[in-house]
């Protein structure tokens, strides 16, 4: 399984803080985005936002990053702390 978590405005738009997917159908972060986009029109629109960031196991990655079972994948908007 791969754990997927969402933060801030993204979490509120989706109405979802986390979910799990089986690892056998996805190889990369881009594959996960595609899988999530296929859930509904809302998810498709939300993941069409090019500014969304992704971290795997707490490190920022790009779409080509390879994922494996046990990974924690996070999607979130550009950060606004400080």
């Amino acid at each position: 399984m791969i754990k997927i978590v969402f933060f801030a405005a993204l979490r509120e738009q989706l109405g979802c803080a986390e979910l799990s997917i089986t690892a056998d159908t996805v190889k990369t972060v881009t594959d996960i985005k595609q899988l999530l986009s296929d859930k509904s029109e809302l998810w498709q629109q939300t993941f069409g936002n090019a500014s969304l960031l992704c971290a795997v196991n707490h490190d920022m990655v790009d779409g080509s990053h390879l994922v494996k079972p046990g990974d924690e994948v996070a999607f979130f908007p550009p950060v606004t702390g400080g």
Binding site: F7, A8, A55, P77, P78, V79, T80, G81, G82
Partner: peptide
Amino acid sequence: IMDYLKVKAPFWKK
């Protein structure tokens, strides 16, 4: 540190 925190650390303000 402050400049990098602003753009790299995962905080969000509402």
